[in-house]
């Protein structure tokens, strides 16, 4: 028996919105500690990892660990029948569920849907706990804007960290550009820029993955970029009181 109730159903909709362009079919894992999801994009360049802790739910029960294979596209069709202010409850009765039930509650209506589940034998990657040598925390809308703007100039974006801060740069056929974001310790947390640089990094990534994933900036005013030289970078959006949504992205290397 599994039941998880989102106080703020809009949050769940934003999460699905952020990952729908990156992953097609995912295994939603539920157990006593909460809900998690890990899935790679078709080209195995990016990996989406969601972690939602049971304490963040209005109601949460999961007697036995469950794996529910679902199509993100079909999940979206069901979620489109809910309002952004609805409370959303996920529920299933059986131990080997073939459907996942959804209840959307608002003050003037209640809706029930069932999504057919699928069995997905997806390869799970072991993501090692890494000590990253550069960790940058910055406003998520700033990061989104920089990726969108520089992404217009070149499909690969460079990220260079130093004690002074973080620099994004592009070198394309039409020309080149760079954006250096200054560290600031303003008392407004959503505008703060912090850099912990033990070792500077200089990495290159396909910016389209950033632009697809940055819909997640609706989840949090801050984004955390964790990097080590020649390692996948992690973009993390903290989901207040619930957990986090992460994107791991493999770098492009100078061949």
């Amino acid at each position: 028996m599994f039941e998880a109730k989102f106080e703020d159903g809009g949050l769940f909709k934003k999460i699905v919105e952020a990952i729908k362009e990156l992953v097609k079919n995912v295994n939603l894992e539920a157990n006593g500690t909460g809900i998690s999801l890990q899935a790679m994009d078709t080209s195995h360049v990016a990996l989406v990892a969601l972690q939602l802790n049971e304490k963040g739910f209005k109601k949460y029960r999961c007697e036995k660990s469950l794996t529910m294979g679902l199509s993100i596209e079909n999940l979206q069709k069901i979620l489109k029948c809910s309002g952004n202010d609805d409370q959303i409850t996920l529920r299933t009765q059986d131990e080997e569920p073939t459907t996942l039930s959804f209840t959307f509650e608002s003050k003037n209506r209640i809706s029930e849907f069932q999504l057919n589940l699928m069995s997905l034998d997806q390869e799970q990657l072991g993501v090692p706990d890494t000590e990253y040598s550069s960790v940058v925390r910055m406003p998520s809308n700033e990061f989104t804007k920089i990726c969108r703007e520089l992404g217009n100039i070149n499909e690969a974006i460079g990220i260079e960290t130093s004690k002074e801060g973080i620099k994004f740069y592009v070198k394309g056929d039409i020309g080149e550009g760079q954006v250096s974001v200054k560290i600031n310790d303003t008392e407004k947390p959503e505008e703060r820029v912090e850099c912990e640089v033990d070792e500077p990094v200089n990495l290159s990534f396909a910016v389209r993955y950033f632009n697809l994933f940055n819909k997640a900036s609706a989840l949090s005013s801050q984004v955390i970029l964790s990097m080590s030289q020649d390692q996948p970078l992690v973009i993390e959006y903290i989901i207040e009181e619930m957990g986090s949504l992460k994107l791991y992205l493999a770098p492009k290397i100078n061949d």
Binding site: H44, L47, L125, V127, A206, P232, A250, I253, N254
Partner: peptide, 14 residues
Amino acid sequence: GYMQTILQGYFSQA
């Protein structure tokens, strides 16, 4: 040019 790597090169199969 820059060659795109994939995650299997960094993360092990679980």
